[in-house]
Design a protein around this nucleic acid. Structure first.
Lengths: 162, 162
DNA sequence: TTGCCATCTGCGACCTGTTCGCAACTGAGT
DNA sequence: ACTCAGTTGCGAACAGGTCGCAGATGGCAA
């Protein structure tokens, strides 16, 4: 099942690449696989690290070039995750259901959120403005439930000691 | 009217800074004013250029430090605008009504979009997950209405010549 | 199956956007 | 006015990402 899924996705990636005059190379295949199997958002160095398990000579520049191509084809999405760790970017394979990302600015956990209202909102924007939508990125930042509680406790301590 | 608005906002900025142990300096005041008067999203070098009209010796590093402080206080927001021009960031003063940004990846025009559904969606996320929401950034990319039409024409040309 | 060539890769140098360390300066409380 | 923690200008440094090039390789045609 999982294999079949990957094969079918791979074939479609190959086709999509060809439609844009691009080739399916070993490097691009491995990089796309890494992202599809990860499920999670990875940064470029992490993609490199994982891809090198299968392709030891792979270079970071190639990873960036592949990510760029896959992004243009809409196969992967680029995220910032509120820049909680430097100014780098994160990448993840696009799935059928688009989701949002909430990043806790205290513990740095990233939560993936789905809400049908997101689809509704996107649809409304497209139909109202006549846009062709290719990417939609909703990123949220703040405190997660746990950290909201912890921050409240700390706030009281600080107030008491003052 | 405009002046009064600025004065009131400035006082509140000063207060907010003080609550965090920060001072209202000439530099921060000018930088905050530039952003509030611009209305539009500006990148750091553009903020520097405009602020230097009032404060010629201002340094880019100071601009970055001020933007960082104002961002932490929630007075301004940081945007990527789909990185249509390099990897820099854009900044804008936060207003009462949060809005979304659609960037045309062909002509690079940025459209600001408001939709009450955005507020609803944010509210729903907060209430469902117990998050404390501090920043919400919805960035969209694709083709604007004009460019969608142009791309269609070009697509036909290409198909005909092939 | 081989040959061909446009596309792609590894590599290191490079570039852009942002941050840092430090000495001098300054806002704002007393 | 005095004080001093917080701030600034400055240049050097840093991180993330891009580029140019020479050699390798996909994948089409014969």
């Amino acid at each position: 099942m999982v294999l079949a899924k990957h094969l079918s996705q791979r074939r479609s990636v190959t086709t999509q690449l060809r439609e844009h005059g691009l080739r399916m190379t070993r490097q691009r295949r491995v990089i796309a696989d890494v992202l599809q199997q990860a499920g999670e958002h990875l940064d470029a160095p992490e993609v490199l690290r994982r891809a090198r398990l299968q392709l030891p000579g792979l270079h970071l520049a190639t990873v960036y070039r592949a990510l760029e191509s896959l992004k243009k084809l809409g196969i992967i999405d680029e995220l910032d995750l509120m820049h909680v760790n430097g100014h780098g970017h994160y990448y993840e394979a696009r799935t059928s259901k688009d989701h949002m990302h909430f990043t806790c600015q205290r513990c740095r956990t990233v939560f993936e959120i789905q809400d049908p209202l997101f689809e509704t909102l996107k649809g409304q924007i497209v139909s109202r403005h006549g846009f062709t939508l290719r990417v939609a990125r909703l990123e949220l930042g703040g405190y997660c439930e746990k950290c909201t509680a912890k921050a409240k406790v700390e706030g009281k301590k600080q107030a008491a000691s003052a």
